[in-house]
Every structure is written in C-alpha cells, then in structure tokens.
C-alpha cells in the first residue's frame, strides 16, 4: 500500500493555533508548541516536576520527591536514544501537570504509546484528557517521527479515547479480555494501531498478513 504522510501534522498545527491565546504555559522553556492540544500539552519532564510525581507517575502507588528525582535522572540518560521517553501531560489552561505519557521505541520502526491522567481526577475527565493527548501524540509519532506503527492500549470503558483513536484512523487489532481492574469489576483492554500510510508494503506481503 502507498500513501502520503502529513495529514496528522496539519491536524496538530490547527490545535496549536486554536490554543495559542490561552496557553500560558507555552512561554515555559519546556513547552512544546507542536504537542499542544485543546485541553492538554505534552512536554519533557524536569527535576522541578519531582514534587508532583503523583500526577505524572503511572499508577496509584505513591512516589515521594526523592524517589521521583532518582527516577527522572535514571529515565533521562541519553537525549538521542532514550529507552523510553516519559512526558508530562500539562493542562493548557493553567499549566498544571494532570497526567503523563510514555513512548517506547521512538526513532525506531515501531512505537508504543501510553497515556494516563492523574488518579485524583474523575474517570470521565481522565478519559477526556487522555483522548486529547492521543490526538496530538499519534500524529507526531506517525507523521513526524515516521514510525511505521504506533500501538496504543485503551481500556474498553474509555469512550473518548477510543473515539479519538478511531478518528485518527487507528485500527482496532486485538482485545485482551478482562485485562483492566475497575472498582467492582473488570473491563477489556483494546489494542489500537496507527499504520503509517507513508510506508510502502509489497502487495504480496499485505495479502499474507490479511
């Protein structure tokens, strides 16, 4: 298959323009205009963020500032080829850290995107923020970094995030049953992939993979 990469970049640019007026945090040296959405932006983490690890660290376990500093130093040893790139998810309106993201495999052929919102937010708000982060991160990885595939796992009850993934043309490839624990029950984990149309796949291989 053949195609043209770049539509996602236009999508990102549109978001940047719309938010320029309210994005105070854009003046910060770590802000990233090309990763700014309607609700949130993604940016690199710094040692100053250690005190807010409860927002950007994945999961419900507590992380104090000392441990967060150690984690941040360990996660930032190679600016050119990080094993895993951790990002802060920042609310555009006020610059507060409201979640995080991680990318494994950036600058390689395939990438795994993971986004999450701070545990103190209500589930619907977390879903909205994650959806916005997906809208800006997937085009960045697929179209600018030219990853061949971007993989994203989404709980089946995250309706906004699923909608964002599908709006971006991501393909639902797999369902892992009952893989996410929720209060009082469990939900499936859906795996979506953005397949880069800029890559050319020989026709016979496409047929064998169908």
């Amino acid at each position: 298959m053949t195609g043209r990469a770049g539509d996602g970049n236009l999508y990102c640019t549109a978001f940047v323009r719309r938010n320029r007026a309210v994005a105070d945090w854009e003046g910060s040296p770590v802000s990233v205009p090309y990763l700014t959405g309607m609700l949130v932006g993604l940016r690199a983490l710094t040692l100053a963020d250690a005190a807010q690890a409860g927002a950007w660290a994945r999961g419900p376990l507590a992380m104090n500032a000392t441990r967060a500093e150690a984690f941040l130093k360990d996660a930032h040893t190679d600016p050119w080829n990080p094993r895993r790139r951790y990002l802060a998810m920042v609310r555009v309106e006020d610059g507060e850290i409201v979640g995080g993201a991680a990318v494994a495999g950036a600058h390689a052929r395939t990438g795994q995107l993971d986004v999450w919102a701070a545990p103190w937010l209500d589930p619907a708000e977390r879903d909205r923020l994650c959806a916005d982060a997906v809208r800006i991160a997937v085009p960045w990885l697929r179209d600018e970094n030219e990853l061949m595939t971007v993989t994203l796992a989404v709980p089946a009850d995250a309706a906004e995030t699923i909608r964002a993934a599908e709006d971006l043309g991501m393909v639902h490839g797999a369902t892992l049953r009952e893989h996410v624990a929720r209060p009082g029950g469990r939900v499936d984990l859906l795996e979506y992939q953005a397949l880069n149309p800029g890559w050319t796949i020989p026709a016979e291989e496409e047929a064998s993979g169908a």
């Binding site: 595939t149 797999a174 993979g209």
Partner: peptide
C-alpha cells in the same frame, strides 16, 4: 489460550 487479535507489521 484464545486468539485475541493481530498486531500489524510487528
């Protein structure tokens, strides 16, 4: 194990 799906171009 049950088949859960496919990860393209892996």
């Amino acid at each position: 194990y049950r088949y859960a799906g496919r990860r393209k171009w892996d």
